[in-house]
């Protein structure tokens, strides 16, 4: 209903004819009068015809609001992207202790692989399909963390966990490599069939 009213006031303002709404009706109703005034104000501001008269009030309000603001001495530093990136890259940037035959064997690679050397080989980027939990398994809604420092702490924990998972994954692969083959194929020489 008030929407309808506002519409008619707006129309009235633009000098359109409106049924059952006259300047006298408006004077009767405070709310409508306010709306009427506000619309005029909006129009004035849009047309840049406000002049100086609203400024002192506005400036005062702002001054009061500023005075009422609590003083922030040290704003919490947001965890920078660099943190995360560094954490991801750290284990791949170790200097390469290398070996001669591998070097020769890798001759063609050396030519082709001068660019971007910092490719993680087994990233733990979760696949779209399999992600029952957020990465670190931290499922608390953010709103629980009303203390700002704890959010930073959580991020760091998350990075730590990610590093840990990476390390475990690499260790898993290494442990497999270290296995002397247990299942020696005994009938290797035997032809499968003929």
């Amino acid at each position: 209903m008030s929407n309808k009213n506002s519409e008619s006031i707006s129309a009235f303002l633009d000098s359109y004819e409106t049924e059952g709404l006259s300047i006298d009706d408006l004077k009767q109703d405070h709310q409508q009068l306010d709306t009427f005034g506000r619309y005029h104000m909006i129009g004035d501001i849009m047309r840049g015809e406000t002049g100086q008269y609203i400024m002192p009030d506005l400036a005062n309000n702002i001054a009061v609001a500023i005075a009422a603001e609590p003083t922030v001495l040290a704003p919490q530093k947001a965890p920078s992207l660099a943190h995360r990136v560094k954490a991801k890259v750290v284990q791949f940037t170790k200097p390469a202790g290398q070996f001669a035959i591998a070097a020769s064997a890798a001759g063609l690679m050396v030519l082709g692989v001068q660019q971007a050397n910092v490719v993680e080989e087994e990233s733990l980027v979760p696949s779209q399909v399999f992600q029952p939990m957020p990465f670190g398994g931290v499922a608390d809604p953010v709103s629980y963390n009303f203390e700002k420092p704890s959010i930073t702490q959580q991020k760091q924990d998350l990075i730590k966990r990610q590093q840990k998972l990476q390390a475990i994954l690499l260790d898993h692969q290494k442990q497999i490599k270290l296995q002397a083959s247990s299942s020696q194929p005994e009938q290797r020489q035997e032809q499968p069939e003929k």
Binding site: Q91, F92, K94, A96, Q98, F99, I101, A102, A105, A106, M109, G112, V113, A116, N117, V118, V119, E121, K177
Partner: peptide, 23 residues
């Protein structure tokens, strides 16, 4: 041998397997 990124390769001579990885 892995052809992209940091070097990673394995060679085998009979029953000796050697792994070369950049890290």
């Amino acid at each position: 041998s892995l052809l992209n990124g940091p070097r990673k390769e394995a060679v085998r001579v009979d029953n000796t397997v050697s792994y070369f990885e950049s890290n």
